[in-house]
Design a protein around this nucleic acid. Structure first.
Lengths: 189, 189
DNA sequence: TTAAAATTAGGACATTTGTCCTAAAATATA
DNA sequence: TATATTTTAGGACAAATGTCCTAATTTTAA
């Protein structure tokens, strides 16, 4: 694997687990097993690494959404795929929270240039969800429903991170899935 | 005002606006207008300042909850007081997110000793809300309802911080208030 | 007024940070 | 094989960090 790719992947993980600010060149270098000075050849600044990490997350998220699009038989199923990442990634969310939400919050507090780019991750989910709700027949308020679900998912991630309560996640995921089913019924009638 | 109090208040604000890690002794010293070396007389370490800030937030939150307890005519009203902080503190939440959630998330990522203390802020709201839902007649699942509302509030704060959308906050607050009213009806029947 | 205590300013300290340079090594190309 | 290009290691650099010491100043108490 190319060194540049290794740097991005290591930084991606470290930024998620310890935050952008708390992760140093030295930390990444140790994981990748290269000398600190060698960084400069691949990335001029720490911000450039952040840009690359965000870009990597964007493309990874896009392909995940594409996958859900293919696998899901109905819009309701696809929305439930989104909801169930809370279960699939439960362990990581307990330890480090939501990768999208925590990065966004940190960059805003740092007043960092990349905060708009980081928010594109949120927008990716928002737009995708909106389209699903439109398919479900809720054209008039699809974006509102998307924001609602995105917000609830963020909230669950936040409290899961704080309280590490598995039954809470399960309960909230069930409620959200029920909510989607109710919206599906409304569409039929 | 005492220097120690001024340090705590300045740190409180800076930790909220820029995060704990990103706030340095120098930053606080500049706001309080004292020399950097003088810190050591009041606080031995940065962690001691954090402890003091968390303690200050805990007492401030407790008195706020007491106030809501006094002002609210019914449990439903009191719960709505909680929901409406999203509106009252809208401007700050847009800029810096929820002070409880963002601190908790940061300290967990830093694997900081004070993460349990910071979580007591969450617990304060959780226990208070639980008691309100019990008063509302939902004894069997009061804690679940409390966690549900706490989570939704966290989610709204998170997305408000990211998207800065006023109408989203208002819409979500209305939905949560309606939800409380429905729970109140269920209690009467 | 004088002595004691509390508070302050200023700077030393080792460490870490992001950034940047240069010479050596590895790889590719002719 | 010989040359050119890519990639690397190691360290220099100034700035900033949290921590800690000491002497001076201010405030309090006798």
């Amino acid at each position: 694997m190319k060194t540049q790719t290794k740097i991005i992947e290591a930084a991606d993980q470290l930024f998620y687990e310890h935050g952008f600010e708390a992760t140093s060149f030295a930390h990444i270098a140790e994981v990748v097993n290269i000398s600190r000075g060698n960084f400069y050849y691949h990335f001029k600044t720490k911000d450039e690494i952040l840009d690359a990490v965000i870009l990597a997350r964007l493309t990874r998220t896009e392909s995940m959404l594409d996958q859900w699009e293919i696998e899901g038989d109905s819009a309701a199923d696809r929305i439930k795929s989104f909801i169930k990442i809370l279960i699939v990634n439960q362990t990581k969310i307990m330890k480090f929270g939501c990768p999208v939400g925590t990065l966004s919050a940190e960059l805003i507090k740092l007043d960092h240039n990349a905060q708009d780019d980081a928010n594109k991750l949120f927008t990716l989910f928002r737009v995708w969800l909106k389209r699903q709700f439109e398919t479900l027949g809720h054209n008039e308020n699809a974006d509102q429903l998307a924001m609602h679900l995105l917000g609830r998912s963020q909230g669950v991630a936040s409290l899961t991170n704080a309280f590490k309560d598995e039954s809470y996640v399960q309960s909230e995921v069930n409620q959200m899935c029920d909510w989607v089913d109710q919206l599906t019924l409304k569409q039929i009638h």
